[in-house]
Simulated scan of single mutants.
Amino acid sequence: MSEVLKFVYQHPLISEADLDKIASQHHLVQFKKNEFLLKEGETADEYYILTEGLVRAFVHDYDNNEITTEFFVENDIVIIPSSLFQKVASQENLQAVTDCRLLKIQYDDFQELFHQIEGFREWGRLWFSYQVFTMKQRSLDVVMKTASERYLKLMKEKPQIIQNVPLKQIASYLGITDTSLSRIRREIMQT
């Protein structure tokens, strides 16, 4: 069984046997750099656990500019929850930023495990509450932190993004222009 799955699905109520059952429903898939895991308008029927590489979620704004809404790094769950769980067309795209290896689980298999394994249900509740907290904190950061502070936080929490993602995508994620990001990076390098 994958160490990644042990890490992602750790919960005191999930036994080793439960983890084996959960792992059996995940299948290795690979995407090349710039390939799409999900495109706007499609409905998700699976989610992924990223074992290697980087993935981003993005939308097109009113001027058709790409705006990055999320970055996923190793051990992250790559998902568009509204599309998967509400069975609606995704407003976001999921795209490999680098070559990626992921473990995929189909929605129906997830649902079956969710109803069979109490610890998996509890894990799911904790995971969703953490996602809500993270999303709320990110919206507060946009209002309460400077662009430099947001960049430094991203550098600290997910340095692989800073090292491997084009500046334009990082800037859109931080809600700033490429020029502003270049200035911030210069200022940080000088200190």
Rank of each mutant, 00 (worst) to 15 (best):
L140D: 10
Q95G: 04
I176S: 09
C100L: 07
S83N: 11
Q116S: 14
V165Y: 03
R121V: 00
Y107G: 01
P12F: 13
R183L: 12
K136V: 08
G53A: 04
W123Y: 15
F36H: 12
D99F: 07
I188W: 08
W127S: 11
S148G: 13
D109Y: 03
K153L: 12
R56I: 03
D63H: 12
Y151P: 06
V29A: 03
A96R: 07
V165E: 02
D108I: 12
N164P: 00
S15V: 04
S2L: 08
D63P: 00
R56F: 05
M144A: 12
M144S: 13
I22M: 10
E42I: 00
R186L: 10
R150P: 04
V4T: 15
I49V: 15
I77C: 10
E35P: 01
K104F: 00
I79C: 13
S2V: 03
I162F: 09
F120Q: 10
D61S: 01
K158E: 07
G175E: 06
E3Y: 06
P159W: 06
G53H: 01
D109Q: 13
W123N: 02
D18C: 09
H27N: 09
A171Q: 07
R185Q: 11
V97C: 05
E70F: 10
F58Q: 08
G41R: 00
Q163M: 11
A23M: 04
G41Y: 06
D178H: 13
K87V: 07
L102Q: 01
Q137F: 03
Q160W: 01
H115S: 08
D99M: 05
S172G: 08
F31Q: 04
N164C: 05
I188Q: 11
A17E: 15
E46H: 14
M144Y: 06
Q86C: 12
H60L: 15
G119R: 07
I49K: 02
S15C: 09
Q30P: 00
R101S: 13
V88M: 09
M1P: 08
Q86E: 11
I117P: 05
I176M: 06
Y47K: 06
N93K: 01
A89G: 15
